[in-house]
Design a protein around this nucleic acid. Structure first.
Lengths: 145, 145
DNA sequence: TTTTTTGCAAAGATTTTGCACCTTA
DNA sequence: TAAGGTGCAAAATCTTTGCAAAAAA
């Protein structure tokens, strides 16, 4: 799937008259290879050793956001993170453990239809959503029993 | 309800050995009086004219977060905002208009039970959640028809 | 070659900190 | 009075910007 995603990114960029550069690919791969959302400073830590300038990271993230390649996510400590969105990654939600702070992906299909139904009759037209659920993950739940 | 909430804040602070000060009350009221979540700089704009120092605002927000008086919310433009949580404000979710960026409160009861059910069998214990739904608000939806 | 992207380095904004003084309980 | 809170001002971080050089198409 990784190669395919990179091809899709390439196509998307070119469609918009933008260029598929090594730096953009490095940022994209950092996001694709990391199972948690990343803040910009965290991204910088990953790609700076490869020679990507910090200003480039900021500019790339902003572009990816405009292109809907990534979306913002609020991390447990109140920091803003970025993660790939479909079709660059699978649609999912987050379960945030209140004990250990771990953010784990949650398959989306279990909550999506119910959510859509809940808006009926409000005059709102939903095109997407983000769900974060807080609690105790399996491991931390066992610890307190 | 406002007076009651302030009493509750006072009690909570004292229970933890903390003090109920004029500055903390000013920050609390700024949050209570504003229907949208506020970023720290936005909070500073509101309370600085009353003589609250910016360092105090940062320290107060951090305390309120630790006390679970407020929670973080990701605003439309990728900025982190803070808002009161129950019992200091009613439980609700957000509807974010993709056209105008407006963040409106959504009554929570329509989505809560469905969400809870969706976790069954996953070994996760949910104690809370945050739901943000994106789309077009009634007004913007009309504009495009 | 044309247009976009990047590096650099400075400016600007946001956030954190230490410590002396002030306030609450 | 004791313990916690605040102001101040500097430092540390994080983010943005302008422009010349480099790279993509």
């Amino acid at each position: 799937m990784k190669i395919g995603s990179e091809e899709q990114l390439k196509t998307l960029l070119r469609t918009r008259g933008l260029r598929f550069t090594p730096d953009r690919l490095r940022v994209f791969r950092a996001l694709a290879d990391t199972p948690q959302p990343l803040s910009v400073p965290a991204l910088i830590n990953i790609v700076a050793p490869d020679g990507v300038n910090q200003a480039t990271v900021y500019r790339t993230v902003e572009q990816f956001l405009a292109l809907a390649v990534v979306q913002t996510v609020l991390l447990h400590d109140g920091v803003v993170g970025y993660e790939l969105v479909p079709p660059f990654s699978s649609h999912h939600h987050h379960f945030i453990c209140l004990d250990c702070g771990n953010v784990q992906d949650l398959p989306a299909d279990r909550v999506d239809s119910a959510l859509t139904k809940s808006l009926q009759g409000l005059g709102l037209k939903a095109v997407g959503h983000k769900v974060d659920i807080y609690g105790q993950c399996e491991k931390c739940h066992e610890d307190t029993d």
